[in-house]
Amino acid sequence: MSPTEQQLLLQAIQEARAPIAAFTIGVAAFSHPSVKQMLLPGDGHKACFTTSECPSLRPDQNNRITAPGRYELPLTPSLEYISSNPRINFTFMNMGIRSAILHVGDAFSSIGYFDHSPELEFLRHARNAVAHGNRFNITGPLKRPASFRSYSISISLNGSKLFRDKEGDGYLHEGDALALLDYLELKINSAI
């Protein structure tokens, strides 16, 4: 593995891990009943996003985003949905981790999973499960061992959930997915 590839992988892990804490805190705070009381009456709270018609968002002199063609996501309906569906928080809480698995898995895939160790094969199968709607998609015997800590992937997991969701438990706990990212970071750093 080249130094450039090592830096690419380390950066992918850091980029994936950083938003998880913010997202987790945000979902927890957003679902708390008192948050609704802090919002102003009406539907004035919106998140703005760029579109092909509006490729950049810049605030005007009054610190308001008035760019035509932007996408506005009203926050109040989302807040009401989360508040009235507390079981959905299980799904929300691991969305950031699912994204991290995809992001880091994509980075490792771009360099061919360098040594196909059991942990990297585990990452590959976890990434594939996330991409298949949080379900393992294993259609034949594994070509290489895929394991991390006490977890071992086999064809028997085909169709089962990777992470828990509003319907119940999954195979992998969120903290173990984050520990996998830590392990991969250590592995890359030890190769430097």
Rank of each mutant, 00 (worst) to 15 (best):
A191H: 12
Y71L: 15
R135W: 02
A21G: 11
Y113P: 07
E15R: 12
S109I: 04
E174W: 02
I82E: 03
L157N: 02
L184Q: 04
H173I: 10
D165R: 04
I65R: 00
N128M: 02
D60R: 00
E15V: 11
S154E: 12
I25S: 15
I101F: 01
S152H: 12
P3H: 11
F108W: 15
T4E: 15
F136C: 04
Q11T: 14
G159N: 10
I153Y: 07
D169G: 11
L102K: 12
K46A: 09
H132V: 07
R70T: 05
S2E: 15
K166N: 14
S78M: 15
H32D: 15
L120S: 09
I188M: 05
S190P: 01
G69F: 08
Y81I: 03
K161R: 15
P41Q: 07
A47S: 11
S31L: 04
L142E: 08
L8R: 13
L184F: 03
L162G: 01
Q61K: 05
L39T: 03
H103A: 10
A146V: 02
H32V: 05
E174Q: 09
E72M: 13
N158V: 05
Q61I: 06
R127S: 08
A67F: 01
A28T: 13
T24Y: 12
D176W: 06
C48K: 13
R164V: 08
R127M: 11
A191T: 13
R58L: 05
F148C: 01
S31I: 01
G105E: 10
N158R: 03
L120F: 06
T139P: 00
L184A: 03
A12R: 02
A129E: 08
S56W: 05
F114H: 14
K36Y: 09
N85P: 00
G159A: 10
D115T: 14
G69D: 10
P145K: 07
L40D: 09
E121M: 15
L39F: 15
L73K: 06
L181C: 07
G133W: 11
P3W: 05
M1Y: 12
S110C: 13
P118N: 12
L184W: 05
E174I: 00
S99R: 14
A107P: 07
M95T: 10
A107D: 07
T91P: 00
L186D: 15
Y171P: 00
S117H: 09
Q61V: 06
L8N: 08
I20N: 08
A177W: 01
S56E: 14
A22I: 11
H132F: 08
R98A: 14
A21P: 02
G140W: 05
F90P: 00
E5Y: 06
E72H: 02
F30N: 01
P74G: 10
G69R: 04
R98T: 02
E119I: 04
A16H: 04
I97F: 03
L157H: 13
E80I: 04
L180P: 01
L10R: 10
K161Y: 15
P86N: 08
L184K: 03
D182H: 09
